[in-house]
Simulated scan of single mutants.
Amino acid sequence: MESTLDEDRTDPSYRAWLKDAVRRVQADANRSADTHLLSFPLPEEWGVDLYLKDESTHPTGSLKHRLARSLFLYGLCNGWIRPGRPVIEASSGSTAVSEAHFAQLIGVPFIAVMPRTTSCEKVGLIEFHGGRCHLVDDPRTVYEVSARLAAETGGHYMDQFTYAERATDWRGNNNIAESVYQQLRLERFPEPAWIVATAGTGGTSATIARYVHYMQYDTRICVADPQNSVFFDGWRSGDAGLCCETGSRIEGIGRPRMEPSFVPGAIDRMMKVPDAASVAAVRALEGTLGRKAGGSTGTGLWAAFRIVAEMRRRGERGSVVSLICDPGDRYLDKYYSDEWVAAQGLDLEPYAEVIRDFLKTGEWSG
């Protein structure tokens, strides 16, 4: 008779630490209110209402707070995040700010691997939350550098670009999609015709699109993609191996490769948005609502404006939802700096004129 093989790796001190870490992350959600759904002022007679889900009001100031919480719970419950060992992330900034917050919350070190062009404000926020920034010259190397640092330190490479779509509960649990529909319940068009998202990992668009299909809504999903990103071309061609040589100027979105968390089949439409249009749109947002937002907000807003104009032209009524992804005070030296705009060779005026004409007439001349 063969003897029974048995191995027990349970460490009571680790299990106690794990329970406390999960409690701390869940408590962060429990004491956080939902984010606002703002109404963008358009003439009521147009018959199309535009809303902006303001994710900049999260405790760490961006849409990525939701993702970071989900990634930490996923890593903790999988046994990947361990006491005293660093968490490492490849990021263009906002995810790293939020992950630094959660790392500090549970008492583990955090290292953000980011392009050297990341805004100084984001670097400062990561360091404020106790994180350390590892800057690289070539944005395409953030993945391999992150994996190497994890191997060298015995830490965990979070890898948001792989795990974003699987760590988030897309069926509900007050995810961003469920929140939008709850907040639209009393509006004149409670089921939006379109929701516009932008893609960094692709996790947000995947969550929203899956929720829409799961709940059997007729809402369509549009993803707006900036220059120097392969998502649009990969979605159109079906080529999951596409890459490009240059990193995105619009921080937080656009990638030089097709990321594993980007789910093309769930999306109804994609729109390629020039960087100058993104900057012009985010400046128009400030002029209309008095709020500064990051460049990714402008990318989505440009696409939302165009969709509203198309609906008007076809005589359709309904609502459109886009996102305020993060606050503009992180980008004062970029999208709100005329010197930076000039140095990048961006001409904002033709796009600003399209927006002015749209807000005045409802027609799209771009």
Results as ranks from 00 to 15, higher is better:
347 D>F: 10
129 H>Q: 10
277 A>H: 06
38 L>Q: 06
266 A>I: 07
333 D>C: 01
256 P>Y: 03
70 S>E: 06
251 E>P: 11
62 S>M: 06
90 A>F: 04
175 N>R: 12
310 E>H: 09
326 D>I: 01
162 T>R: 13
277 A>G: 05
185 R>F: 05
188 R>M: 04
168 T>C: 13
216 Q>E: 14
62 S>D: 05
267 I>Q: 03
92 S>T: 14
217 Y>S: 07
119 S>T: 12
275 D>F: 08
177 A>T: 06
79 G>E: 07
282 V>K: 01
45 E>S: 09
87 V>S: 07
248 S>M: 11
34 D>S: 15
362 G>A: 07
296 S>N: 01
340 W>N: 06
263 V>N: 09
312 R>T: 01
294 G>W: 03
85 R>N: 13
209 A>W: 01
15 R>G: 04
68 A>G: 01
242 L>I: 14
166 R>N: 14
124 G>L: 04
17 W>G: 07
159 D>Y: 11
47 G>V: 06
43 P>V: 11
112 A>D: 01
324 I>D: 00
345 G>E: 04
349 E>Q: 12
221 I>T: 08
366 G>Y: 09
124 G>D: 04
197 A>T: 14
128 F>K: 13
159 D>K: 07
78 N>A: 07
15 R>E: 15
283 R>V: 02
219 T>C: 14
149 L>W: 10
28 D>L: 02
120 C>H: 11
111 I>M: 06
8 D>L: 02
77 C>Y: 09
273 V>H: 00
260 P>G: 02
35 T>L: 10
295 G>R: 04
277 A>M: 00
